[in-house]
Amino acid sequence: MSDALLLLPDFTLIVIGWLLCRHTPLNRPVWDGVERLVYYLLFPALLFSAILRHPLQPSAAASLAACGLGVVALGVTLAYAVKLWPGVDAKLHASGAQVAFRFNSYVALALAERLAGIQGVAWVALLVALCVPLCNIAAVWPLARHGGHGFWRELARNPLILSTAAGLVCNLLGIRLPELATTTLVRIGGAALPLGLMAVGAGLTFGGLKRAPWLAGAFLSIRHAILPAAAIGMSLALVMPPAQQAIVVAFAALPTASSAYVLAARMGGDGSFVAGLVTLSTLIGMAGLPLALLALRAMA
């Protein structure tokens, strides 16, 4: 399977969710419950178990970690800066800003082994552990402010942030769960991807992006043009090994996180706008990710 086709199942699940919600008895009330299940149980279980299963070795990949954090920090800065443009709708910006810097960790882990074997999986696990907390905090901040929620209260109650922090702490302390508990968490987390993507499809209204097409274009340009280009430049400037260069460029070119829609919907944002962004990001990523890797090989 080529790098482009690797994203096809994700997009197919989004289409299936849309068809089920629009053309079967599994309509909107059913998917409201699915969103809550994914947000409060399935995604947290997936994040915690994924981080805990891969021992972190920051010293062995310091340049990789610095590059990954730099890419995310740049994405957050640019996404927030978009709000300074005249005429930006505050709710749409608060909902969609996360699309510019969050990433699909499932696709990242799937690509890692193809690009760099088992070592690549360990490198991506490190990036996930370091960058997911930053991404989630940056995603919650504008939504909490726009919705009038207390930021620190939202962080303290956010299941994605809590599960990521718990996994990171347990990993660094060398804590390992019993095999039975690990297997149970892995199986619970395994349901997060298909249900999360189908929930994106169920919430999709194709007119959602029409309210601010230029804003959507700005967020997607950051995600799929500026960040991959920055990753190529940083990885070459740091003279990283070729395998690490490929991992960090692929990381920067990933489609946005499918849970972005769930977060926006659960925190009172514009779910339909974010669902459209997630779908477009998945489509763009199918072509953009392999193109970013080709650009890296041409410049290395």
Rank of each mutant, 00 (worst) to 15 (best):
Met267Arg: 05
Val200Asn: 03
Ala218Cys: 02
Lys210Thr: 03
Ala264Thr: 11
Ala250Met: 14
Glu179Leu: 09
Pro194Ala: 14
Phe251Thr: 01
Glu179Asn: 03
Leu277Gln: 03
Gly207Lys: 13
Tyr261Pro: 05
Gly201Cys: 04
Phe219Cys: 10
Ala275Arg: 10
Arg176Met: 02
Ser281Glu: 00
Phe273Ala: 14
Pro242Asp: 07
Val239Glu: 13
Tyr261Thr: 09
Thr183Arg: 11
Leu168Ser: 05
Pro241Trp: 07
Ser258Lys: 14
Leu263Asn: 13
Ala218Tyr: 06
Ala264Gln: 12
Ile161His: 05
Leu209Asp: 00
Ala257Gly: 03
Val239Asn: 05
Thr205Gly: 06
Leu197Cys: 05
Ala199Gly: 07
Ala260Thr: 10
Tyr261Gln: 07
Asp270Lys: 07
Leu204Gly: 02
Arg266Ser: 05
Trp214Lys: 09
Ala212Glu: 14
Met198Val: 15
Leu215Gly: 02
Gly189Ala: 06
Arg157Cys: 06
Val239His: 10
Phe273Pro: 06
Leu172Phe: 08
Ala246Asn: 05
Leu172Pro: 04
Gly201Pro: 12
Ala165Phe: 12
Gly271Leu: 15
Val169Ser: 05
Leu280Tyr: 09
Leu254Trp: 01
His224Met: 11
Glu179Trp: 11
Lys210Pro: 01
Ser235Ile: 04
Val274Met: 09
Ala246Ser: 10
Gly203Val: 03
Ala243Val: 13
Pro241Glu: 03
Thr205Asn: 09
Arg176Val: 10
Pro228Gly: 01
Arg223Trp: 08
Pro255Phe: 12
Ala252Gln: 02
Pro255Arg: 02
Leu209Arg: 14
Ile247Arg: 08
Thr205Cys: 07
Ser281Ile: 02
Ala166Pro: 02
Ala252Lys: 06
Ala230Gln: 06
Arg176Tyr: 04
Ala257Phe: 03
Gly207Tyr: 13
Glu179Ser: 12
Asn158Lys: 04
Ser259Lys: 09
Asp270Pro: 07
Leu155Tyr: 05
Ile188Arg: 12
Gly269Ser: 09
Pro159Phe: 13
Lys210Tyr: 00
Pro194Ser: 10
Leu280Cys: 04
Val186Gln: 07
Lys210Asn: 12
Leu162Gly: 11
Val186Trp: 10
Leu162Ile: 12
Thr183Phe: 09
Val249Cys: 02
Phe273Thr: 15
Gly203Trp: 02
Ser163His: 11
Arg223Ser: 10
Leu254Cys: 01
Leu277Val: 00
Leu263Gln: 15
Gly268Trp: 11
Ile188Asn: 12
His224Asn: 01
Trp214Gly: 08
Val248Lys: 08
Thr256Lys: 14
Gln244Phe: 11
Ala250Phe: 13
Ser281Asp: 00
Gly208Ser: 06
Met234Lys: 10
